Simulated assay, not measured.
Amino acid sequence: MTTHDIDISDDTSGKDAEISDIVSGIETCDRMIEMAESRLNGRIRNAEHERIRIQYIKAISTHLRTKRSYLKDRELEEMAETVADLEREIGRP
């Protein structure tokens, strides 16, 4: 799933701000991952540069975990909306 797959246009539960925050967080993670990945190119010639390279790899890992968390939050929001819609259809309050 990419950030382009997320549709925040039809919010029936009044959670536009939350969904917008999730999408914004995903986009921020994508930018941070791209920036860190761009720093990993090239040969490493000394130990200090290798330590820095490892820090960038750790940063990518952290941002990927954060992005995955945002995607899970969005999926849970979608499930909650689906359950609410189904409950309305069968007449539950």
Results as ranks from 00 to 15, higher is better:
14 G>L: 08
3 T>A: 04
44 I>Y: 06
1 M>N: 01
52 I>Q: 04
89 E>G: 05
77 E>D: 04
29 C>V: 00
57 I>C: 06
31 R>G: 00
18 E>W: 00
9 S>D: 14
93 P>R: 08
51 R>I: 03
76 L>V: 13
77 E>N: 12
65 R>D: 13
32 M>A: 02
7 D>P: 09
62 T>V: 11
75 E>H: 11
40 L>Q: 01
3 T>W: 15
89 E>K: 12
13 S>A: 12
64 L>N: 12
84 A>Y: 06
44 I>G: 03
43 R>Q: 11
16 D>M: 04
52 I>C: 07
20 S>Y: 03
55 Q>Y: 10
43 R>C: 09
42 G>T: 09
24 S>P: 05
1 M>Q: 03
55 Q>G: 12
86 L>D: 03
57 I>E: 06
22 I>R: 00
62 T>I: 04
65 R>L: 10
68 R>L: 09
51 R>A: 00
37 E>V: 05
24 S>Q: 13
57 I>Y: 00
34 E>G: 03
84 A>W: 01
83 V>E: 05
36 A>W: 03
37 E>P: 00
59 A>H: 05
77 E>A: 14
14 G>M: 00
26 I>L: 12
85 D>Y: 10
48 E>G: 12
78 E>N: 07
67 K>T: 02
73 D>P: 09
45 R>M: 08
31 R>I: 01
93 P>D: 12
64 L>C: 02
26 I>F: 09
21 D>H: 11
26 I>M: 15
